[in-house]
Write a protein that binds this DNA or RNA. Structure first.
Lengths: 247, 247
DNA sequence: TTGACCAACTTGTATATACAAGTTAAAATA
DNA sequence: TATTTTAACTTGTATATACAAGTTGGTCAA
């Protein structure tokens, strides 16, 4: 019998490290769907930590839909294979594309600093004096231009933005270079009539409507710093969400 | 100065009671957006409990998007007014309709026990021997038939289902009468071509596409017991989601 | 054999303590 | 005055303990 012995690197928190370690084992298939995880007591011995720390890790797994905890019985692994597409949460296009393993390309159409007009002021919390980055990009997937991304970023937080950054990943730049702590977002989804701009930058393929995903992105201190409108061609749109019932 | 003194009824857990009490104060406007909540230490004194219990309540508020915790500073109330529409999560149509305060009606078109065909077996985890409730209902909002709901429930969990129950709220019946513990769900959203069934039961209004929300609903023990397909007219569809970034 | 009960497990809640780490504003210092 | 330091706050992490409550499987008695 082969015993899986995990070595945890303790750069991060203990409970986060354990969460990531258990998640890895689930992804690798060491723990299969419907398997029972070791009990909290056993895990606390394996990881040489307290039960409360184990419980923090397990609760994270539960919130994210990887396990189900059942009182008196234990924790069982859920069928996670179904959730591996655009699961709810804050995921950038680049992270998504890598997961999907598709041939993707980003085309930058606009990149400029603008004074916020009424439209921008409606969505981003800025005054007429502030400056705002406006970025318009289309996303090509397997040779088809499917998604039109319109980003508005508060210049106060982002002094510089280049063509290269926009072609790669703005998120990566913000988090890794500028060390901005992106914390949470509000998403709003609805269907809109297609516009001339959509026709100009996308392969609209004769559709008259388009799925709009509006994103309000906030930093750690709850300041709104970005508004993004993502316009998806009807036939390629897909959103997966995991939700727990709260009573 | 008026001091708000909350009286907590201790039927439920302490931390849940505190969560609900704080939430109520936020909804009532006793705590306004951008207000700072009392510190964890103060709250633990006010509620006569330990700091850990307060932290459980605050973490719930944070997960659900009501507050933002900032290390070293405190917890501030987020602008919750924006999230009060169909926020992500498991919410039944009846609960939703009550929140929106719209004139709604449910029309039951089909209600029968069927042997699962290939279509049902694809979505619900049943064998050919099992029996399944099939319910088809349309939802009328302000006089227009907007949503077509197709429910499939495993009969093993739901022995009886009546016309009245389906007109009211299946969820309410399941939870209150049958005492089923609905625990979590996976939602999948995409756009589909409109079907003859849609045209038959809905005011499709000339649209050629329809937004489909598929729901896989699970009980506490992680058993899949219901599959629901909710078909929304394009122009009336709207989905709001709050998501925290996990690193 | 059947059922009741119990012991040993499981997870859930609540509490107390200690220290780490980030923030803030007053006090001390140059 | 301007800057640095410090003290007093804040939230975050980790640990230990106790008991409640649900599950399971074996034991024992009818």
């Amino acid at each position: 019998m082969i015993q899986y012995k995990s070595v945890i690197v303790m750069k991060e928190n203990k409970f986060l490290a354990i969460y990531n370690d258990l998640l890895l084992q689930i992804r690798k298939g060491i723990f299969q769907p419907n398997d029972k995880l070791p009990s909290e007591h056993e895990l606390s011995q394996q990881y040489e930590t307290s039960r409360e720390t184990i419980r923090k890790a397990l609760n994270l797994l539960s919130e994210h839909g990887y396990i189900q905890k059942i009182k008196g019985k234990g924790s069982i692994v859920l069928d996670v294979g179904k959730y591996d597409f655009p699961v709810s949460g804050l995921v950038s296009f680049k992270e998504l594309a890598q997961k999907m393993k598709k041939r993707v390309r980003t085309i930058v159409h606009e990149l400029q600093v603008v004074k916020p007009d009424d439209y921008i002021r409606k969505y981003l919390d800025v005054t007429a004096k502030d400056e705002v980055w406006k970025v318009v990009r289309s996303r090509e997937i397997e040779g088809e231009k499917i998604i039109l991304d319109k980003d508005f970023l508060h210049r106060k937080f982002v002094p510089l933005l280049t063509h290269e950054i926009c072609e790669n990943s703005i998120y990566e730049y913000l988090e890794n270079e500028l060390k901005l702590k992106i914390s949470f977002a509000k998403k709003e989804m609805f269907v809109d009539k297609i516009t001339d701009e959509d026709r100009k930058y996308l392969d609209v393929d004769g559709y008259e409507h388009i799925v709009v995903v509006q994103n309000y992105v906030y930093l750690e201190d709850a300041s709104l710093f970005q508004f993004t409108e993502s316009r998806h061609r009807l036939d390629k749109f897909r959103f997966v969400d995991f939700a727990r019932r709260t009573h």
